[in-house]
């Protein structure tokens, strides 16, 4: 059986060696595509005209919205991996949600900071305690809590299983974030891109926004694959060190 045929089967990804081979093959393409999309997206973001109402600040949207979208998608990826950990005892799933947590925290931080910088000229304040902002802030705290829990435990597989439970319980926050703008009538504007009846946003702003969203998503997947690879290597190093120590102890 040739390598490329085997890789097409998703279940074979369970084998870390196969995953490493696949990662080595697609990572250059993925990172090149990400860079290209970022270049196009940034060019579009600064060449389009400003909104007549919001002026130049509408350009903040092109980083704020993709980062906020990723902060939720990253948690969903982690929740899926957590199911993989608990139900199928999938060895890569453990690694996957551990590697995704810092990425999610970073994207949530970007969304919060850019949102705050957008809010100052538009709403006249850096921060309001409305439903959307508060729930995203809670999401940020949950990412940090999961990272802290992962760091507090020595045994990696037990840490993975226990934090998987926490991730799944914390998943109740995601629908709250998604629908907070619809359920509560607050300052933050409701969704304008993905909704029934088509986007309410002008095509002029939609184009750079979509390019940037795809670029951010690809960036997430590139970094996620790299982080998973690092984690696999880290575990191999520690296993081999332990083996070496045992051998040395036996023969020494």
């Amino acid at each position: 059986m040739t390598e490329s045929l085997a890789i097409t089967k998703f279940s074979d990804l369970a084998n870390p060696t196969r995953f490493l081979a696949l990662a080595a093959r697609i990572l250059p393409w993925l990172s090149a595509l990400t860079t290209l999309l970022f270049a196009v997206g940034l060019y579009l973001a600064f060449s389009t005209e400003g909104d007549y109402q919001q002026g130049d600040t509408v350009r903040i949207m092109y980083v704020h919205v993709p980062a906020a979208w990723l902060s939720m998608m990253c948690y969903s990826v982690m929740a899926l991996s957590a199911i993989g950990t608990l139900v199928w005892r999938h060895p890569l799933a453990d690694v996957s949600h551990k590697a995704a947590a810092p990425l999610g925290a970073a994207f949530t931080l970007i969304a919060l900071v850019t949102g705050s910088l957008w809010g100052k000229p538009m709403w006249g304040t850096w921060w309001v305690w409305d439903a959307r902002l508060t729930s995203v802030f809670v999401l940020f705290l949950m990412y940090l809590g999961i990272i802290a829990l992962n760091r507090a435990m020595d045994d990696p597989s037990r840490a993975a299983r226990v934090s998987a439970v926490l991730i799944l319980v914390g998943f109740v926050n995601i629908p709250i974030i998604k629908f907070s703008v619809d359920w509560w009538n607050t300052l933050h504007q409701p969704a304008s891109v993905i909704r029934l009846g088509g986007p309410t946003i002008d095509g002029e702003f939609l184009r750079p926004l979509l390019v940037m969203a795809v670029a951010f998503t690809l960036l997430f997947f590139t970094l996620h694959i790299m982080a998973i690879r690092n984690e696999i290597w880290r575990r191999r190093v520690s296993t081999q060190r332990r083996m070496a120590a045992r051998l040395a102890g036996r023969e020494g």
Partner: peptide, 14 residues
């Protein structure tokens, strides 16, 4: 100022 600061911070974090 706000636009460039937010792009700067996002770029830095990324």
């Amino acid at each position: 100022f706000y636009v460039y600061t937010s792009y700067g911070i996002s770029g830095f974090v990324t």
